[in-house]
Write a protein that binds this DNA or RNA. Sequence first.
DNA 1: CGTCCACGTCTAC
DNA 2: TAGACCTGGACGG
Length: 278
Amino acid sequence: MPELAELRLTADYVNKSANGLKFVNIKKNPVHKGKDIEVPFKFFRISAESRGKELMLTLSDNDSSEKRHLLMTMGMSGHFAHTNTGGEKKHSHLMFAEKDGTTLSFVDVRRFGKWKWVDDWSPNRGPDPTTEYDAFTDNIIHNLDKAAFNHPIHTVLMNQSYFNGIGNYLRAEILYRLPHINPFASARDILRREPDIFVLCRDIPLQAYALGGGQLKDWESPFSTDPEPLRKFMRCYGNPNMSKRKDKNGRMFWYDSKWDEDALWDHYSGLPNPSAYM
DNA sequence: CGTCCACGTCTAC
DNA sequence: TAGACCTGGACGG
């Protein structure tokens, strides 16, 4: 998806676009299998906040203090676009129409994004490493005995119960910046002994955010930004000079080729390299 | 034409 | 731990 940085940019975009506007309804594209959305307010305001890879939209009644919360995920390609009503982009699936002729649309080519009414963030996802850093580190440190940490660090970094917001490009960039850490070594051991990794789980997403997010193939930054700084930031993910291997969940993991021997152990034995556990 | 690949979850054997 | 869910771009024949 869109990972942590892109979710936060998406929240910024919604807040900027919806600022001062009175919305009147939400229409769903019938091709999408998601639920229809009926808002019980005549006019409502919209604001947004992100936490890891989730986006919370708050719909506030213009004429009372009532609110409703719509929790969204962006899948692999979801983003928002503010256009004239009637001029929505292709693959718009939720269209928030405003009273003066514009529409804020959730655009999602692959339709992996989802939405639902909620009262709170999803309980099975951990704290945001950038906005709730202390809760993020505590949640990991206090659960290191759990089976979730019986895996190499490169797979555990994708576990949203502990690393909410870290996705495939962020894990590659985080681990690449820790040259002394074997990405195929035990997550439990690494997290116990290398506090640097917590700091990078905060700072690398913050850097990506500051640079305007991942303008990769399926995700378009809602803000026009210079792609060059982000290209420089992306040192490992997608770099043809790096090694790559499918992880146990079928996702391509990009890493420094100096770890190729350890990767082979991981691949052929189905067990982590014993030397990685010393 | 076809096959492979993509910033992510889900759920069903 | 495979698939399923989707569209579309890149690349091969």
